[in-house]
């Protein structure tokens, strides 16, 4: 599997994806200047904009790398040569996933460092009313990365069954949007007033989707980073377990489906 991870990383770097990220990272230079327009909450706004930029870049990476890696290998007939080597399709799929996940983590480190520099620069311009807790920002960025790695897994699952580019790309975007909304919708449906107003069928359908789709709300810790609010450690552990469990299930289903796929 290590060699699959290695060539996946090589492919991403040689396709100049990282250079593209570095170009986008130039935007970090403008964040403190943009945040200075807020006058009073410059650090908070810098943190918000930095974390949002990281999220945006990571979403693009997750969708396009996750959705296209398997699809491209099939489309360009690389699978005929790779899958005829003595490696199982499961190893291939997991290798591809870990390669992309590793790249996402490397990108996170790079973008995270840029964000920390931007936030530090902002604190010089206008001292924040609350102290900046760097560890909180780092953990927030890390959990953001986990969220997008989970989206990669979803995109790869869709790519294992799809013959076109559209299902994995648009499917992953849809799952991301729905996954971000499931928790607020579920909480809303649990309120007594709504329970009385909404039919049981709608509530059951929402509940099913809540358990079926990835719940991405738990990974969003931006409020903690922006306002230096301490984490609920137990919540973080649960989210980490959820990430590992959900990714394992998604990729296991993907492996099963991919093993049955015919390479015509």
């Amino acid at each position: 599997m290590a060699t699959i991870i290695h060539i996946t990383l090589k492919g991403i770097f040689r396709d100049r994806v990282f250079q593209g990220i570095m170009v986008l990272a130039v935007l970090f230079l403008f964040i403190p200047s943009a945040a200075s327009l807020s006058m009073r909450q410059m650090t908070e706004l810098t943190t918000t904009l930095s974390l949002s930029l990281i999220s945006f870049i990571m979403l693009l990476l997750a969708v396009f790398l996750g959705a296209t890696s398997i699809w491209k290998d099939i489309e360009r007939r690389y699978t005929f040569s790779v899958l005829s080597l003595p490696i199982s399709r499961t190893t291939y799929l997991w290798g591809r996933f870990f390669g992309i996940a590793l790249f996402m983590l490397m990108t996170t480190v790079f973008l995270g460092a840029m964000a920390l520099i931007a936030i530090k620069a902002a604190t010089f311009g206008y001292p924040p009313s609350r102290p900046v807790v760097w560890s909180t920002i780092i953990v927030t960025i890390l959990f953001d990365a986990l969220k997008y790695i989970l989206v990669v897994a979803v995109a790869m699952l869709l790519a294992t069954v799809s013959t076109s580019f559209f299902l994995p790309v648009f499917g992953a975007i849809s799952v991301f949007l729905a996954g971000t909304a499931t928790q607020p919708v579920y909480d809303y449906l649990q309120t007594p007033s709504v329970q009385a107003a909404v039919s049981v069928i709608v509530r059951k359908a929402a509940e099913t989707l809540y358990y079926l789709l990835p719940n991405l709300s738990g990974f969003d810790l931006k409020v903690h980073a922006i306002y230096s609010i301490p984490f609920n450690v137990q919540g973080l552990i649960l989210t980490s377990i959820y990430f590992a469990g959900y990714t394992l299930i998604i990729l296991s289903i993907g492996s099963f489906l991919f093993a049955w796929r015919e390479m015509k």
């Binding site: 360009r76 690389y78 005929f80 040569s81 005829s84 003595p86 490696i87 199982s88």
Partner: peptide
């Protein structure tokens, strides 16, 4: 997958990771 351990295979119109 183990069956392919002693096999050298050339696919028709082969394509390999071009990078």
């Amino acid at each position: 997958a183990e069956s392919r351990r002693k096999v050298g295979f050339l696919p028709e119109n082969p394509a390999f990771y071009d990078y």
